[in-house]
Design a protein around this nucleic acid. Structure first.
Lengths: 159, 159
DNA sequence: TCCAGTTACTTGACATATCAACTATTGTGT
DNA sequence: ACACAATAGTTGATATGTCAAGTAACTGGA
């Protein structure tokens, strides 16, 4: 396909097919995150707080602060305030490690575990609702292409 | 185990194919936005500020504050501070409308226009670099599936 | 033992997003 | 003309993300 043919097919405002793809991805994630943010807010937490709870639950054991941050896309300093707020909300607690006093473990409280349990079904339902129009085949294609699309970025960002 | 499961070190699998797709999308957008954020920072602006400049440039004329916000995924109150900072940086200016004194137009300054011009080539190059591994066919598929994936969300969010 | 480097976090400054509430201005109905 | 609703934006409180810089604790080598 020539450059001209390509440019003709471009929707107004996009400088290239790649830019169009990028902006489509960003908008899709933005829109879906808005829906999840609202769901979480109904339960008194933010998406990031939910991520921390989910990671702690998935690990099945207390994790060091930085380990939690590493499993999120979150930058290190941000984890401090995040855990501060979870602690204030009674959903998690900090526990200093006896062996290495630099390390501070984060642990789910029963309250945190209960909230996660209560969110399981609504979260599943929202995933179903938001992506319900896509067939399994389409979902697999989307997963494959999204993974391919971030390969270069992950290398550059040192993932 | 998929690449994403490895990279975020989930011990249990995804709860559903839809969740896997969702987390893949989020992860991809996060990673690519990190790269763009760095590029913009080298030029002294943030991704959001770039978006405002790009919208004003695309419109070709001054736009009301809320019109700018409407063209972004940005919530109304956030646009105020965003424009404050652009104004302070000398990249845009506010101009009160004479006909309807409630409306405040935002306009690019020559400096803002110049910055956009300087960013054109690096931004194109970054799009090329990040998504260069995807063929045109794959890009089109990705665009189509991403659009389909956000249909429900946009309806729910009143887009 | 002591010091320099590393590691695990925390803090501070700033940009942004969210919602609710507020001001200023305009339009509308009576 | 007056009361009230609608519109355009701003402000304030809170949550989060970014980087740079700081603190506390461990580690390895002279």
């Amino acid at each position: 396909m020539t450059e001209l043919e390509q440019s003709i097919k471009l929707k107004r405002g996009f400088r290239s097919l790649r830019e169009e793809a990028m902006l489509n991805l960003v908008r899709t994630v933005d829109q879906t995150q808005i829906a999840f943010t609202r769901l979480f807010r109904e339960h008194g937490i933010t998406p990031q707080q939910y991520n921390v709870l989910r990671i702690l639950s998935g690990a099945g054991e207390p994790l060091p602060c930085l380990e939690v941050a590493a499993r999120m896309v979150t930058v290190v300093p941000a984890i401090t305030g995040l855990i501060d707020r979870l602690e204030k909300a009674g959903l998690a607690v900090r526990k200093r490690c006896a062996d290495d006093r630099r390390i501070i473990f984060v642990e789910l409280t029963p309250g945190g575990r209960g909230l996660l349990k209560a969110l399981e079904e609504p979260v599943d339902r929202l995933h179903e609702e938001l992506l319900g129009q896509l067939t399994d085949t389409e979902l697999k294609t989307l997963i494959r292409l999204a993974a391919k699309a971030r390969e270069t970025a992950e290398e550059r960002n040192g993932a």
